[in-house]
C-alpha cells in the first residue's frame, strides 16, 4: 500500500562503478553502514569469513518482504532482486565495527542455510523469521513457530497477509448484556 512506483529516481549511489568486494561478495554503503550482498550459495562462506575476521557477535537476523516495493535500487550489479531478503547484522565486540549481510531469497524456494553453527545466538531470531515470513533455515536445530500459536496458518509479516483490522463497532446496550 505504501509502495512507490518504479519511477522514483531517488538512488543513493550511482550504479556505474563496480561494487568493491568484501569476503568475496559485493560491498555497498547504506547511510555510512557497510552492507555485503552474498548469494544463497555463498551465504555460509561469507558468514564464516566474517566470523574469522572478528565479527564474533551476531546482533540480529531479520527479513524483509519486497512484494510491494519491487523498484528498490540499492542492490549492486549482479545481485538479482528476489521477493524476500534475509538480513543479518554482525558486530565486532572488540573494535565495534558493524557489517550487514543481505541475501536475496526467492518466494518459490524460501530457504537459507542456518547460521546456527557459526553463531548459536541465531537460534531464536531465525525462528522468528520463520514464523513471521515462512523462510526456512536449512539445518536449524529447532525450526518451529515462536511468536504465533503452533497451529496458526500463514506468516503475518508477509506483505500479502492483511493486517487483520476489524471495523470498530458500537454495540447496542441491550443486545450484549
Amino acid at each position: 500500500m505504501n509502495a512507490e512506483p518504479d519511477g522514483s529516481t531517488e538512488t543513493e549511489d550511482d550504479p556505474t562503478p563496480p561494487a568493491p568486494l568484501r569476503y568475496g561478495a559485493p560491498l555497498t554503503d547504506s547511510r555510512g553502514q557497510a552492507v555485503v550482498h552474498p548469494s544463497r550459495d555463498t551465504w555460509l562462506e561469507v558468514a564464516e569469513a566474517a566470523l574469522n575476521d572478528g565479527f564474533d557477535h551476531l546482533t540480529d537476523v531479520t527479513a524483509v518482504d519486497f512484494l510491494e516495493y519491487p523498484g528498490r535500487r540499492d542492490l549492486p550489479d549482479g545481485v538479482e532482486p528476489q521477493r524476500f531478503e534475509v538480513v543479518a547484522l554482525l558486530s565486532n565486540i572488540a573494535t565495534r565495527e558493524r557489517i550487514r549481510m543481505r541475501v536475496q531469497v526467492p518466494v518459490d524456494d524460501p530457504t537459507v542455510p542456518t547460521l546456527f553453527d557459526l553463531w548459536p545466538g541465531s537460534e531464536t531470531p531465525e525462528r522468528e523469521v520463520f514464523d513471521m515470513f515462512g523462510i526456512s533455515f536449512v539445518d536449524h536445530p529447532d525450526l518451529c513457530r515462536i511468536l504465533m500459536p503452533d497451529d496458526w496458518v500463514g506468516h503475518p509479516l508477509r506483505k500479502d497477509y492483511a493486517v487483520g483490522r476489524i471495523p470498530v463497532q458500537f454495540k447496542d446496550q441491550g443486545a450484549s448484556l
Partner: peptide, 12 residues
Amino acid sequence: RDGQSAPLLIRG
C-alpha cells in the same frame, strides 16, 4: 483473523 481469507470477521 489472518486476512488470508479476505472477509473480515465482524463481531456479533
